[in-house]
Write a protein that binds this DNA or RNA. Structure first.
Lengths: 107, 107
DNA sequence: TTTTTATTAAACCGAATGGTTGACTAACGA
DNA sequence: TCGTTAGTCAACCATTCGGTTTAATAAAAA
């Protein structure tokens, strides 16, 4: 259950699952409600939610016969954190270049 | 070849590929050199680099018989950008809560 | 020219993925 | 109590994935 980058990135690599995340950002809701807009079976959506839940991105709470899902963005923080190590490589080409040059100097 | 979030997150969902990215952040290098530390065939590593390249995260340039690979972090920017939409959900629980309340008000 | 080196291509394999359907369970409403 | 609703489970299917091995290509080195 300890979420890792593999699971986080895998969970977010599917457009349906990203849409579910986007939906949950608007507020907690039920599985059926999540499933509504999708042209696929409830079972399929349920599996997607399971993937998100296994990745620690969604918390599912059962109340009665209904499952309420809420966004748990914690693991995204780690993902961003990993990505930001490479920030210089997209933000500032000169910075990246100088980084390379520095490295080259002491190699 | 237009990289999308699906490809970006998929590419980054594998630990080997993330290690390749980390390696390339230290500077451009060859496929063989990338493959060295991994306990798998060159073919396997070549495939991983191909996935990264298809995702637009790595640029491969052939010089002679050697392929030089360099990091192209551009697509990561879009990934971070997508993730940052959910920043409030991990950074500040009160902010997230107030966000929900606001939404609830005009629904 | 011959051999080595760097790499891709092709075929294959087992496991995982994203989807389906049908049967089941459990809770709510009439 | 009975039917409906919310959701899971299990089995199945086609495709993708991560790896292998063997063969092919093309450039550099001897």
């Amino acid at each position: 259950m300890t979420p890792n980058l593999d699971q986080t990135f895998t969970a977010l690599s599917d457009a349906t699952r990203r849409a579910i995340v986007a939906r949950l950002a608007q507020g907690e809701t039920t599985l059926s409600d999540i499933a509504c807009p999708f042209d696929m079976s409830l079972t399929a959506v349920s599996k997607h939610v399971r993937v998100l839940s296994d990745a620690g991105l969604v918390n599912v709470v059962k109340r009665g016969r209904t499952r309420y899902c809420q966004l748990q963005a914690g693991p995204m923080k780690d993902a961003v954190s990993w990505l930001n190590h490479y920030q210089e490589f997209w933000e500032d080409r000169f910075a990246a270049l100088s980084h390379h040059l520095e490295k080259d100097e002491h190699e």
